[in-house]
Design a binder for these strands. Structure first.
Lengths: 224, 224
DNA sequence: AAGTGGTCTAGACCACACT
DNA sequence: GTGTGGTCTAGACCACTTA
């Protein structure tokens, strides 16, 4: 069968409110149930997800309203993990290799240092300006051969997140000299390095990312 | 009436799993429904909240399991906004005043610079070690007179969050000289300043916080 | 009084895992 | 075949707000 009914309702609602201004009420749950020939619980399921995502908010005894889109939930900072890139974003892969883990990376991925990993370094740009350098570490044994030859597939890590969770550490450092030219920042500039670990539902690490952020081009912002 | 039935179920489940190890299955939804003489939808409501909070995870066709507590969702970095402090935490209020807004703060709180605000500066400690300095800005007109004289109440901002959302910006800076001694860090240390704005459901700012974090005593970490 | 979201019931069918 | 979570129905009562 096709997608569940509540997903269809959710999509329709998102389409309906995409140009609506903040605090506009949406139709009541009972009315939507009638319109979609669905039960109220099904409509609530659709609305619940949109509330959870910060697209709508409820006000008891009053109704359900369009939330401030500026306050849309943003839970991660990493370019790699964000929504589909729009055309103001692009990137260059600077380095790609398959090699043994060094100890630090092995510890983060909970593998042995004699295990193979894939290391990708890329420079992310927005409007042509360098926003961050990402060092992405994957466990080689988890990658099948088809994906190995498809860089875009390798770098599309969003799929992993739906099935797991992300932990990010924010570390203040002085920009590493090797990235000064790439990021186009001055010597001794304080920057934030974000260490992200994606773990599967069962708790085993899948991907480890170090992201060196250019503070003049990117402000890390999170909304909950 | 008392609390809703699903909240009671949620509390019981939390109690039950608090010492359980990771990946332990909980009772099935149908069994819990029987045990609590509730419908399955009511049990699902309870479980949904725990899944949303990262306490449990579901595996389709298999069951519902205890999640890795290390991966419990942590959505904010600020001391002020975190769970009830345990006894390893304490703080000193260093500064408390009621004054006109300067322009920068007024802009963040979306009020006029001739409006009054309350400014609180405090030093947070864990195990006696300084973890952060927080500058907390409240809109005076939103505070009633009773609360004004109750510093603990003023600093208990968690209530606001349930009704609104938090946006945090992470800014890399060199530690301000005035906080070097308080934080016990060296001159020119790179640190992260977290700017938090709490806004109500309707989108108007309520509290603005600047937090200067000691990188040697506190690693900012977020799990989603 | 009418309408809203919050909670709740007692069923149902499905696809999928395991045995 | 049995059990699981995922989805869905067609009602219901409550507390509350608004007119």
């Amino acid at each position: 069968m096709g997608a569940p009914k509540y997903q269809k309702i959710k999509q329709d609602l998102m389409e309906e409110i995409k140009d609506a201004s903040v605090n506009t009420p949406i139709a009541s749950e009972r009315e939507l149930a009638g319109r979609y020939n669905a039960s109220r619980m099904t409509v609530r399921n659709a609305i619940n997800e949109l509330v959870e995502e910060g697209v709508l908010y409820r006000d008891k005894n009053k109704g359900t309203f369009v939330a401030d889109q500026r306050l849309m939930k943003k839970n991660t900072s990493a370019e790699t993990l964000n929504k589909p890139m729009d055309d103001t974003y692009d990137y260059n892969v600077i380095y790609f290799s398959s090699c043994f883990c060094d100890e630090k990376i092995a510890a983060c991925l909970e593998i042995e240092s004699e295990d193979w990993m894939i290391r990708i370094v890329r420079l992310n740009r927005k409007n042509g300006k360098p926003v961050s350098v990402e060092e992405i570490y994957l466990i080689q044994s988890l990658i099948n051969d088809n994906d190995y030859n498809n860089l875009n597939k390798l770098l599309d890590l969003k799929g992993y997140i739906d099935e797991g969770s992300v932990t990010q550490k924010f570390l203040p450092i002085i920009v590493p000299v090797k990235y000064i030219n790439l990021l186009h920042v001055k010597l001794n500039t304080p920057i934030i390095m974000v260490e992200s670990t994606i773990v599967s539902k069962s708790g085993s690490p899948v991907v480890y990312i170090r992201e060196f952020n250019n503070p003049t081009e990117k402000i890390i912002e999170i909304t909950t």
